[in-house]
Simulated scan of single mutants.
Amino acid sequence: MPKIAYVNGRYLPHRDAAVHVEDRGYQFADGVYEVCEVARGYIIDMTPHLDRLDRSLSELKIGWPMSRSSLQTVMREVISRNGVVNGLVYLQVTRGVAPRDHVFPAAHTRPSLVITAKKSSPQAATKRAETGIKVITVPENRWERVDIKSVGLLPNVLARQKAKEAGAQEAWFVDPDGTVKEGAATNVWIVTKDGRLKTRPAESGILKGITRATVMRVAEKLGLEVEERGFTVDEAKSAREAFITAATTLVMPVVEIDGQPVANGHPGSVALSLRRAFFDVAEKIAA
């Protein structure tokens, strides 16, 4: 089955999908994006993902490219045309095409919309969760508005590349005082010695993860206490468990930080139990 992308009103073969050279997403990273997991033929947590898209667009004063209901229809069509039962669907909205100028273009400029979908293997993800991942830490060097899911991800790209070169799978941004903020593409959690879950508050300084919020509900269902409080790298290294959350990873155990094993260096029972119970709690809308 050939890959199909949606670009500004047209369904195109992936190899032919393109945006204008003066699209502001290309010129200025003047746009936002969202990504939803597709699992077992359902779009996971679509409502809160689109709510966050609405907030990101509002913060940047970018209009919706179409109505919310129409966007959902296009998402389903892209998923269907790509035969995705398990995978991811990506949405990117930019301020549109206009002559290059730092200030906003004319008010009638139409936002650009690109939607793509790709398959993934649940078995491969489960196998990775059974072994866990390694992370490194890097100094925080991003702009302050990381609460907006902007396409301006160069610091995240460099951090992920550094992680790859170190044999790790994720990088955690760390404040000057040693407090962990979030991963390059994930939210960060630890499990304390007494079994409490800790994750940094999402009012500012990090992206308010949709999967993060669902995991909080999963934790409540499992009778686990969640404390929204910052923690240091040293606390994470000495924790009972550590894990990350995102639509692309769900709940993924962390077994090593900067070359130092977390606990016994194996995935912990809390993270794995959260992962197993995730789909019982998450919103599921037929794709």
Rank of each mutant, 00 (worst) to 15 (best):
R142S: 03
E144Y: 08
M46Q: 12
D175A: 15
D177F: 01
S58V: 02
R68A: 09
P105W: 06
D51Y: 10
W64G: 05
A106V: 09
R81V: 03
S112Y: 06
I136V: 14
R68W: 09
L88Q: 12
S70W: 10
F173G: 01
I133L: 08
E140G: 09
W172A: 01
E59Y: 13
G132T: 11
S67Y: 07
Q123H: 15
T47L: 08
V146H: 12
V74I: 14
G83V: 03
P139E: 05
T131N: 08
K164H: 11
L113V: 03
P99I: 08
E77C: 04
A159T: 08
T137N: 01
G132L: 10
K61R: 15
H102I: 14
Q92W: 01
K119P: 02
G152H: 13
P111M: 01
D54G: 15
Y90P: 03
N156K: 06
V151H: 05
R76A: 11
P48H: 04
I62V: 08
V138D: 05
L53P: 05
S56Y: 11
S58L: 08
G152F: 08
E130D: 13
V97W: 03
Q169W: 02
N82E: 00
V93L: 09
A166L: 09
L91A: 09
N141V: 09
R145C: 09
P122T: 00
T131I: 13
G63A: 15
A106L: 13
D51W: 10
F104I: 12
G63Y: 11
V146F: 08
P105E: 02
G83C: 07
K118F: 05
T116L: 06
S80M: 11
R100I: 14
L113M: 00
L113P: 04
K134Q: 11
T126S: 13
E130H: 14
V84R: 05
R55K: 12
G87P: 00
T47Q: 04
R142E: 03
P176D: 01
K127P: 06
G63E: 13
G87M: 03
L57R: 07
S58H: 14
M66K: 08
H102Y: 15
A107G: 12
W143Y: 07
P99A: 11
Q123V: 15
E144F: 13
P155D: 00
